[in-house]
Design a protein around this nucleic acid. Structure first.
Length: 878
RNA sequence: GCGAGAGUGGUGGAACUGGCAGACACGCGAGACUUAGGAUCUCGUGGCCUCGCGCCAUGGGGGUUCGAGUCCCCCCUCUCGCACCA
């Protein structure tokens, strides 16, 4: 064996794997199927850097172990090729997104190949290809038919820079565009939505059945934001037939309501505003409209609002309640109107204090005396203004016949009473809004709808799909968007725009918007299973056996958005009878971010670490090992060249280990086929009675040590890989390398060549080398392949099976037991593993300096932790 | 503000249900081999000191326990999520 030359080894094996189709998965065999998926790449203009590798390499490492364990692993790859960044990049560089995307993907493919992952390239999926988006459109139409895709005019998020609407999920908590960072504004536009809110409960329920990080589930639960409460109807005084609906989660505080507040945008506001209040109200509404999301969402801001002049009538007490508008009530949540209970809601209290509105306590602390506070004691003007709302549940007071009830009971009783009067009902509200899917941009799948002046929106017949995205279109930004008198790019193409109505054959116009790219990525994992099927989006037979995806790896930045949308899609398709399962991703893992100089890698900062820079000198395997060993998977960390250097040194050390014992290792395959003992965990002389056969105690001892290291490595590396603890898995393998070197360098072998060793040593050592190369294979597949073949094997290491842990081989192992006296480490002793507690205790008390340490104190207690330690507890000195 | 998670050597990071804190590495130091070393190998490497089977050490302070990085309470710092959601 020559020097370790990764460049040469790696390209050679990658070619062999490719030509032999080693990574092609036979999907007809689903008996032990394992669908391992990574979030596919986005060819936006940046090439893949080590940050991308950091989700792909660990996923591949895990998948390789699964494959070696005998699973039929499917690991596909593809491109999320539509989308704004690609389009913006193309505009900036005066290119066409289609051309530029193809070019970019071509480069990324070579990058991905260099990574040495087990991708089945025959099943690549590219979302911007007509063969794919045809089915995206087809699926859109199924949702349309089912009423799950609909058009509606609504205030929507508008990104002025990208000139398109955005889904709520694409607006950051700061109110900026998730893609470009521009402040998002609101516009009233007619847009396409997917009715994801209809699946709020299903989306919540499904979370309990999937193996996802708790954090991610929490984020989704919060995003969905389900709350149960009561909708209450308030008649407006003097306006018969005009009633306001409010939503509250605290119907028990109904008698504490002292005014109502509507969102400024509430549609009833103009109708009920009195003439003398109209000017102020209109002005306030205008001011609100101009305010940005951030300004409005700020909780530290002073409360503002205006009185409408109108009054509502309390449904149970008949009391007159003033109706206000204020921007602390959001138009998009609940009914856009609230009953204000200042005594028991901080926001209402702040508002009441700002505008001198009355405060009435109606909930007393549990167990406290009823009517403890005289009516109006805390009311405004009483001198001692209430500043802290009492939002805890308790017992009702000042609530008529509901007095004395607990909040819990009163919620039900009051709701029941309102239902009886026809003034209310139980209701469930969610924070989740319907998913806005139309985009006023070019680079996406056209929405397959035709707008006919007589028939309205009509589906394009399936047979006419795809509605092809025209190539020759002016997709520049600057039209001003739908409100600026401009048209979305597709509108600028007359040939695209004008068509015939599929229903009445009259002149009609195509929908001019394209779909959000999250639609593309909501079903790509289904398409991977039959990417070339021309008759349907996916093959139900294959999809229903291979899904859900067994392991999905990607960043937590998609906790809402992609991961929520894909779940919705699968649930909707299940209900449409197209799928037999309803959760797409059974297990999910998030990698942490890889930074450089503490900052996220980006072209802008000029801190991108390109794999190509390192592969020629260090090799792919070193890069892979560094990615796996140098960080905690879920945490990520800062890139350090020195870490890569260390990983490379480790691989060199492995190489030298095999090179030094080349002659011995060379015969590994043959020896194994002879069915000798090496394959089993405990060759002759390893067991408890070891050494008795030839009386060579040091030799037997050395063999026991090596075998123990070997078994530990197998056990721990396997466990660690399974739980995505790649860094510790690699460290177990390093320990085994160290142990193997120590064994071979032992003085008793007098530096003799390993082929000259005793048969027992040779057998064990060969078996160890054989296990080692296989343990290493998921992390460093090229090197492992090379070594495997150097060991005389003809098959690929991927098909060599996974080393099996042999517990019996560890039985005779000698271990160290720590002896403490009163919790302090005082000595240690070597005993056989699993020695009885009684015996361990007896020996510990007599061991070395222990009796001396105990002195004349009496032993109160002896704690024995099996195979770990003994703690002698004394009872003071005598 | 609410919720979740995290604070461990010079660095990355280990430590399963409480059981030798710092595995495995990087870096550093000393030595060996070398014409040379940014190669390789060996040894050492948390702090302190009176250099001992010594003492102190897992953000700080209390507690439970034979025993606490791990469990409980209080505080500090950082990260993330939510943030007028009625």
């Amino acid at each position: 064996m020559d020097r370790y030359d990764p460049a040469q080894i790696e390209s050679r094996w990658r070619e062999r794997w490719e030509t032999e189709g080693l990574h092609h998965t036979d999907l007809s065999d689903a008996a032990r199927k394992c669908y391992c998926l990574v979030m596919f790449s986005y060819p936006s203009g940046d090439r893949l850097h080590v940050g991308h590798w950091y989700s792909y390499v660990p996923a591949d490492c895990w998948a390789r172990m699964r494959r070696m364990q005998g699973w039929n692993v499917f690991e596909p790859v593809g491109f999320d090729a539509f989308g704004l960044p690609a389009e913006n990049f193309a505009i900036k560089h005066n290119a066409h997104p289609a051309d530029f995307t193809e070019k970019n993907m071509a480069y990324m493919r070579t990058q991905l190949r260099e990574m040495g992952a087990m991708y089945d390239w025959r099943r690549e999926v590219v979302t911007c290809h007509r063969e794919y988006y045809r089915w995206t459109q087809w699926l859109f139409l199924r949702l349309f038919e089912a009423g799950l895709a609909y058009r509606r005019k609504a205030p929507v998020n508008w990104c002025p820079r990208d000139e398109t609407v955005l889904a709520n999920e694409q607006v950051t908590p700061e109110g900026t565009c998730e893609r470009c960072g521009t402040l998002v504004t609101k516009r009233d536009l007619t847009q396409w939505f997917f009715r994801i809110t209809a699946y709020a409960d299903a989306l919540l329920e499904g979370l309990d059945r999937i193996d996802w990080p708790e954090k991610t589930k929490t984020i989704q639960r919060n995003w969905i934001g389900r709350s149960e409460g009561t909708e209450i109807r308030f008649e407006v005084e003097g306006l018969p037939g005009c009633a306001l609906e409010v939503f509250t989660t605290r119907p028990d505080t109904l008698f504490g309501a002292t005014y109502l507040v509507l969102a400024p945008e509430h549609p009833t506001v103009p109708e009920l505003t009195t003439p003398e209040r109209r000017y102020m109200v209109e002005e306030y509404r205008e001011r609100t409209r101009r305010a940005t999301e951030i300004e409005r969402a700020s909780t530290v801001r002073e409360k503002t609002g205006e009185f409408t002049g109108a009054h509502a009538l309390h449904p149970l007490s008949g009391e007159r309640l003033p109706i206000w508008i204020a921007d602390y009530v959001l138009p998009s949540y609940g009914t856009g109107a609230i009953m204000a209970v200042p005594a028991h809601d901080q926001r209402d209290l702040d508002f009441a204090n700002a505008f001198a509105l009355p405060v009435r306590r109606v909930i007393a602390a549990h167990g406290g005396p009823l009517h403890a506070q005289p009516q109006g004691a805390a009311a405004h003007g009483g001198g001692d203004e209430m500043t802290q709302a009492e939002d805890a549940e308790g017992v009702l007071i000042h609530s008529g016949r509901f007095d004395g009830m607990s909040s819990r009971v009163a919620m039900q009783e009051i709701t029941r009473e309102l239902e009886r009067l026809g003034s209310g009902r139980r209701a469930v509200k969610t924070r989740l809004r319907d998913w806005l899917v139309s985009r006023q941009r070019y680079w996406g799948a056209p929405i397959p709808i035709v707008h006919c002046p007589t028939c309205g929106p009509v589906a394009v017949p399936d047979a006419e799909l795809p509605v092809e995205l025209p190539y020759d279109v002016d997709f520049s930004i600057g039209g001003g968007g739908p409100e600026g008198g401009g048209l979305s790019p597709l509108g600028r193409s007359a040939s695209f725009r004008h068509t015939r109505c599929p229903a009445c054959a009259g002149d009609a116009e195509r929908d001019l918007d394209t779909m959000d790219t999250f639609v593309d990525s909501s079903w790509y994992f289904l398409r991977y299973l039959s990417p070339h099927d021309e008759g349907r989006p996916f093959d139900p037979a294959v999809v229903n056996t291979w899904c859900p995806v067994d392991m999905y790896v990607g960043g937590i930045d998609h906790a809402v958005m992609h991961l929520l949308f894909a779940r919705f899609f699968v649930k909707a398709l299940r209900d449409l009878g197209l799928l037999a399962f309803d959760e797409p991703f059974r297990s999910l893992r998030h990698q942490g971010p890889i930074t450089r100089g503490g900052a996220k890698m980006s072209k802008r900062w000029g801190n991108v670490v390109a794999p190509e820079e390192y592969i020629p000198t260090y090799g792919t395997d070193a890069l892979r090992v560094y990615m796996l060993f140098g960080f905690t998977f879920e945490q990520g960390g800062d890139w350090e060249d020195s870490g890569l250097h260390g990983a490379s040194r480790f691989l060199q050390r492995v190489w030298r280990l095999y090179a030094r014992h080349e002659s011995l290792w060379d015969s590994a395959a043959r020896e194994t086929e002879e069915g000798e003992t090496a394959e089993r965990g405990a060759p002759e002389g390893i067991g408890e009675e070891a050494g008795s056969s030839n009386g060579d105690e040091p030799a037997a001892h050395a063999r026991r040590e090596l075998n123990a290291a070997r078994q530990h490595a197998i056990l721990r590396a396997t466990q660690d890989l399974e739980r995505f603890a790649f860094n510790t898995a690699i460290s177990r393998i390093m320990e085994l390398v160290n142990a193997a070197n120590a064994f071979a360098d032992a003085p008793r072998l007098q530096g003799s060549s390993s082929v000259a060793w005793a048969e027992e040593d040779r057998g064990l050592f060969r078996a160890t080398l054989k296990d080692l190369v296989r343990l290493l294979a998921p992390a460093a597949p090229h090197l492992a392949e090379e070594l495997w073949h150097a060991g005389g094997h003809d098959s690929f290491v991927l098909d060599a099976g996974w080393p099996e842990h042999d517990a019996s081989a560890m039985a005779g192992e000698e271990i160290t037991i720590v002896i403490q006296v009163d919790g302090k480490l005082r000595d240690e002793m070597r005993v056989a593993r699993d020695l009885s507690e009684v015996e361990v205790r007896r020996r510990a008390l007599a061991h070395g300096r222990i009796p001396e340490t105990i002195g004349d104190r009496s032993v109160a207690r002896v704690v024995v932790v099996p195979n770990r330690l003994v703690n002698v507890v004394t009872r003071g000195s005598g």
